[in-house]
């Protein structure tokens, strides 16, 4: 097997005495769609933040395409081709929708910190941003401040920003959180389309959402992965049923 897109080994994180992530080993292959599910407080978002260097791990390593990410800053990791979205909508609210996407393209198109290019003169930049707006169905909202978009539109924009830079590993943190069923279907459909051929790692609270989408599902409970397998087998796994689905069922009633 070739080098996995993302390789976690012995990953641990404690805040003081509280162990949130207690040793995670996980390989995610290239172009795999991988979902991480688990009940509230299982450490899903923490795991995400460890991978993207928002937090430093207490122990263990994260490798992207075989390269150790230890000690790198978020912006350096992003330049290596890993992009993420956030559970709480994280866009540039005062800038226009178009500008949000254009900012996401700047580094990928090699503009770096240049102050000798005018962004409005760069055709590739404008066209690239417009193409992404069309992909996420926000062309009609192009010139309004992003903060004025509806919640679902902001989530779509966030996904647009995340994929815009052309990263080949995309991490989405609960992209459908707080959405109605129709909105959820719409966003999942969008995710399917825009991550075609890319490695996708997605955190979800609700297993039903990722069932049709994921190639493999990992179940995270109390900072440990108790199962990693295809959706069907994960669903059939008695351990998962006990730890996660049982709890979810309880919560529903």
């Amino acid at each position: 097997m070739s080098v996995p897109a993302l390789e976690l080994s012995g990953l641990k994180k404690s805040f003081g005495k509280a162990e949130i992530i207690r040793g995670i080993d996980l390989d995610i292959g290239k172009a795999e769609r991988h979902a991480i599910i688990g009940p509230n407080g299982a450490g899903k978002s923490t795991l995400f933040n460890l991978i993207t260097a928002r937090f430093a791990p207490t122990a263990g390593t994260v490798k992207l395409h075989g390269e150790n990410l230890a000690g790198l800053e978020p912006f350096q990791i992003n330049r290596k081709g890993l992009s993420r979205s956030f559970q709480i909508t994280n866009i540039f609210p005062k800038m226009s929708v178009f500008e949000n996407v254009r900012c996401a393209l700047l580094w990928a198109q090699g503009y770096k910190y240049s102050f000798w290019n005018l962004v409005s003169r760069q055709r590739a930049l404008t066209e690239g941003a417009d193409a992404i707006l069309e992909e996420i169905n926000l062309s009609a909202r192009r010139d309004i401040p992003a903060g004025m978009l509806s919640y679902a539109e902001q989530r779509a924009l966030e996904i647009g920003i995340t994929i815009a830079g052309g990263a080949n590993v995309i991490m989405l943190d609960e992209p459908t959180a707080g959405m109605s069923n129709t909105e959820t279907d719409y966003i999942m459909d969008l995710i399917m389309r825009v991550t075609e051929g890319k490695t996708l790692i997605m955190v979800e609270h609700d297993m039903g959402v990722v069932f049709g989408l994921a190639d493999r599902i990992s179940v995270l409970v109390y900072g440990e992965i108790i199962a990693t397998d295809t959706p069907e087998r994960v669903r059939a796994d008695p351990k998962v049923q006990e730890a996660y689905l049982g709890a979810a069922l309880e919560a529903e009633h």
Binding site: I91, L106, S114, F115
Partner: peptide, 21 residues
């Protein structure tokens, strides 16, 4: 310019800007 536009982005949301490279 790119750096001028990113100044706006960093003002609005420094963390998001970091995850854009």
């Amino acid at each position: 310019t790119p750096v001028g536009r990113m100044a706006n982005a960093v003002r609005d949301n420094p963390e998001r800007a970091e995850f854009l490279g």
